[in-house]
């Protein structure tokens, strides 16, 4: 089951890589949130506990409803254009991603021989981290950077589930809060920037330094 969810997770990553619309990023974030929530829910099918359900529920609330909504609101408020404005061709980006994923899978397979870990979620999470970084590297729009950051964070989540079956709940909740605050701050910052400058591109930020 974990593997199937990991496949879906990776498919959503591929979609993020090939799409050229900002809206699609938000949709993918939602889908990934649902996948992660289900993934966290799996252990509780067999032995139900009310405390265990807190984390998936919060995750669902934050990742599927709050953050995407907030991003959508920012997009609407600031009237951001729909295209993502990549810096490299999509056709080149996808092979880079595929190649990195192959390397990651091979590497994590080697790692799994010495340590106790679940290869597929581990590698998928790792790929999500790398792809998140790629997105921040290769895209111009700030709002897309936020999405890339969130994908990276999702990757860390998946990564975490693979390394240890039960991470301390407080830590997970802490990261969630962290992310939420970061996104919130980014939104406010974007608002401020839009008041000062006309565009929302990373190139404009270059003018900020003195």
């Amino acid at each position: 089951m974990e593997n199937v969810l990991s496949i879906l997770f990776c498919l959503s990553l591929f979609y993020v890589v090939v799409t050229s619309r900002v809206k699609a990023y938000v949709t993918v974030l939602r889908v990934q949130g649902i996948i992660l929530a289900i993934l966290l829910m799996i252990p509780f099918i067999y032995h139900f506990s009310i405390f265990g359900i807190i984390l998936p529920a919060t995750l669902l609330l934050v990742k599927v409803f709050l953050i995407p909504r907030y991003i959508n609101k920012v997009i609407l408020d600031l009237d951001i254009k729909r295209r993502i404005e990549p810096t490299i061709q999509q056709m080149v980006f996808l092979p880079i991603v595929i190649a990195s994923m192959i390397v990651i899978f091979l590497a994590s397979n080697i790692l799994s021989k010495s340590t106790e870990l679940n290869v597929i979620p581990f590698a998928s999470g790792f790929s999500a981290i790398v792809i998140g970084i790629y997105i921040i590297m290769f895209r111009k729009k700030l709002i897309v950077h936020v999405c890339g950051f969130l994908i990276l964070e999702n990757g860390i989540f998946l990564f975490g589930t693979a390394v240890a079956s039960e991470l301390p709940m407080m830590i997970e909740l802490g990261t969630l809060l962290d992310v939420f605050v970061v996104v919130f701050l980014m939104g406010i910052a974007l608002n401020r920037i839009s008041n000062t400058f006309e565009g929302f591109e990373i190139t404009d930020l270059g003018r900020l330094k003195d």
Binding site: S6, I7, F14, V18, L94, F105, A123
Partner: peptide, 15 residues
């Protein structure tokens, strides 16, 4: 994209 799905699928199956 279709190719990527194929590769991913194979990777996950193999490991």
């Amino acid at each position: 994209f279709a190719t990527a799905i194929g590769i991913l699928n194979l990777l996950i199956y193999t490991f």
